[in-house]
Design a protein around this nucleic acid. Sequence first.
RNA 1: GGAGGGGUGGCUGAGUGGUCGAAAGCACCGGUCUUGAAAACCGGCGUGUCGAGAGGCACCCAGGGUUCGAAUCCCUGCCCCUCCGCCA
Length: 468
Amino acid sequence: MSVRRGAGRRPGPCAGSLSAGPSIRPRGTQGRLYNSAPRQNHLSTMIDAKLLRSDTQAVADRLARRGYVFDLDAYRGFEQRRKDLQVRTEQLQAERNAGSKRIGQAKAKGEDASPILADMDRIKTQLAENETQLGALQAEFDDFLARVPNPPHASVPDGKDEDDNVELRRWGEPKAIAAPRDHADLGEALGLMDFAAAAKLTGARFTLLRGGLARLHRALAQFMLDVHTQEHGYEELYVPYIVNATSLRGTGQLPKFGEDLFALQGEQDWRLIPTAEVPVTNLVRDEILAASELPKKWVAHTPCFRSEAGSAGRDTRGMIRQHQFEKVELVQFVRPHESDAALEELCGHAETILQKLELPYRKVILCGGDLGFAAARTYDLEVWLPSQGQYREISSCSNFRDFQARRIMARWRNPATGKPELLHTLNGSGLAVGRTLIAIMENFQQADGSIAIPNALRAYMGGLSSIT
RNA sequence: GGAGGGGUGGCUGAGUGGUCGAAAGCACCGGUCUUGAAAACCGGCGUGUCGAGAGGCACCCAGGGUUCGAAUCCCUGCCCCUCCGCCA
């Protein structure tokens, strides 16, 4: 079995948007899950249980495309046992309810209710036993289902890992730079990027920026926000950077990827956000949006905190992989039939930033095997880094279809049916700010070690044309 | 941090042990009336799940408990509000 997930797969600045792990059921719901009231189980199952029941083999076939072996026998066994137990339990509940009603009526008339009470005793015992069994079975079943990833979209290419991703196109021509220096080298030489200082203050994987680079970093975030709000129609959000466990479970960071998160000490089970996806997506948790509000397009600029637990030794130089970085995140909630188009649009919004900044990049579609747990389809945008002579991930844009929405019960009222129906969710980085800074430094480096400022950014830099 | 008050359907808001999935009003949908609209009147109107259907089951912040039976009683947690204190 190879369940590959975003956060585990590539803990880059954008991978959080792909992450969503299998979930154990929420704490404290044991024994009450035989029914399906939304508040009681919506944080466990992500796969469409109905579709799975009606078209088991087809779902299994689709899952195989991402390298996930769906255990048909185990599934069918669970279904059979669950159904039997549930029917019996509900029959007993019906008996109990009817009996209780008769007792009430008898007492109201002043009759003797003791014959009925004796019978109730039997029912009560049997029912308790059935409920316990059903609760345990449901818990096991939910855990099984929660580990099933999102079936890939039909357009996703076959493949088992990163090497099988398909490049869709390239934009921009990498400049010929003789003996390109990397951003750490450039930044330190300018005296504006200080890893030693950050290490003194905190430790490894932090960066301190000064003067022009600190300003450029700020300018980038402002620029991205302005483009997305003014040209792409997103509403800007300011959100908490600390979230509770329920929110993290909603987007799938918990319980599977808990070690990638920084937890706060104290009485509350609070963590620092690994991506704005967590607060923004959870905003719609348990909500029913009006059709007139759709599509919902939100952009948020936040710091992101990641422990990078599984990445020891990877990208240790420079500020490619940090415990703290900033990101401008795009999130959309859309009507189901609009989500395919929305992914193209959202990815285009991220591309616009790269184009305006004149940064050469390529667009890649992830193959089935490289897809994050919750994603049905993902495009990665990779920016050219001259010092590495290769393209590196700077944005990851995914369509989750109804997978995340089911987990957080994000719905809309469909006027055609009058009923609440699941939304489709999408998100993507637009862009990772730290990596954009790096890309600008490396692509715009001058022979004398200074950094030219891309035209689009100069207004945000007080007219400055270069950092020296 | 101290004291008190609350969490019920899209909204307001009744309901303190039984026939309550839950009064009433508003909103919304359909109809009658009207040249049209409004008003008025009639009807409908939560979610999930199982079932071919009839209908069953579950859900009144969450979890646990008492009871033949819990929106209602008890315990725990979370959240909100008011006053005092502190504070950017």
